[in-house]
């Protein structure tokens, strides 16, 4: 299989990058000012708890030994105990990850559907008044601070108009039997609406601009001209040949956007009190809950790196010039 090799070499590269990021994370939290034990131990822990953690993370040993212990623990999914919640960090992270992923993917899917259609349309109407009007607006949406957009939407749709709730994932006092029934409830979706819209408005610019400029390029290709010479229908020419080819790099950018979005989530989750990884990271850092902060950072980094890999592989699989080499 000719496609196996790039997959393997990229995967190997991913492992290297992951290792490097994990090492940076270790150094970041170990070299910070203050007590070296502070990365895992809170003074309010009981003595037995403290001793157990010192043993588990080798905190009384040399930095190098600690590093290997840290790597070993990571491989077993062992991230320590949250100072504030007194629960394993991993447990907390797994609880929050779905919320972050739901927010990220729903907003990006909306952003991409809109961006692709609008981008293709703007390419079609190039040099028109619609374009002169739309392009600066699109550029301006990319220049907005996401959290500010969130604040504005929150003020208008929640506080002024009262259409959507102000934050969180569910109304006070509601209980659901399972996560699934929570995620599919109208209550959850109405809580999702504003943060999702915020991130979608912010993210649509990239697919829109990419799609537009790709379409403009593709429509000048020989095969598009030949499709016209063949007398094919405008739909076939614009959609099947034009858009299909222009879409390729846009699809790849989706995976990269997931990575970027995850980072941007940090602020938007904070504005909407959305219980996700980003907000958790911020509150953990503020509260000096270092194990939890490390865990959240690590999880975000893993998704970012994974998405970079997927972007590469997507390209490999979507482009027959590479997949059928």
């Amino acid at each position: 299989m000719s496609t196996l090799k790039p997959v393997l070499s990229r995967t190997f590269q991913l492992i290297l990058v992951l290792w490097a990021v994990v090492t940076i994370l270790f150094l970041m939290f170990r070299l910070m000012p203050g007590n070296p034990l502070a990365a895992y131990i809170d003074p309010t822990f009981t003595l037995e708890q403290q001793e157990a953690l010192i043993r588990q993370f080798g905190l009384d040993e040399s930095l190098l030994r600690q590093y290997f212990t840290y790597l070993g623990n990571l491989l077993q999914g062992e991230l320590g105990y949250s100072f504030r919640y007194r629960t394993p960090v991993a447990e907390r992270i797994w609880l929050l990850l779905p919320n972050t992923l739901i927010l990220t993917f729903s907003s990006l899917i909306v952003a991409y559907i809109f961006g692709i259609l609008a981008g293709a349309w703007l390419a079609w109407r190039r040099a028109s008044r619609a374009e002169a009007f739309a392009l600066p607006i699109v550029l301006a949406t990319r220049a907005m601070p996401e959290f500010w957009l969130g604040m504005v939407l929150l003020a208008i749709f929640s506080f002024s108009l009262g259409i959507f709730p102000a934050g969180g994932t569910r109304s006070a006092g509601t209980e659901y039997e399972s996560l699934w029934s929570l995620y599919t409830s109208a209550d959850f979706l109405s809580h999702l609406a504003l943060p999702m819209l915020t991130l979608a408005i912010y993210s649509q610019g990239l697919p829109l601009l990419l799609m537009r400029s790709n379409m403009l390029d593709v429509m000048k290709e020989d095969f598009v001209t030949m499709a016209k010479v063949k007398g094919l229908s405008p739909y076939t020419i614009v959609i099947k040949h034009g858009a299909r080819n222009a879409l390729l790099p846009v699809m790849t950018s989706f995976a990269i956007s997931v990575g970027y979005q995850l980072q941007g989530n940090v602020v938007v989750e904070s504005v909407f009190s959305w219980p996700g990884l980003g907000r958790e990271l911020v509150s953990a850092v503020s509260a000096s809950d270092y194990p939890l902060a490390q865990g959240a950072f690590l999880m975000i980094a893993v998704v970012v790196i994974l998405m970079n890999l997927i972007a590469d592989l997507l390209y490999t699989f979507l482009d027959p010039r590479i997949s059928h080499a």
């Binding site: 990021v21 990271l281 959240a296 950072f297 980094a301 970012v304 970079n308």
Partner: peptide, 14 residues
Amino acid sequence: DVAFGIPFLPFVIV
């Protein structure tokens, strides 16, 4: 490559 693997905003926050 490593720099591309670091989540930007979280890194700056920390």
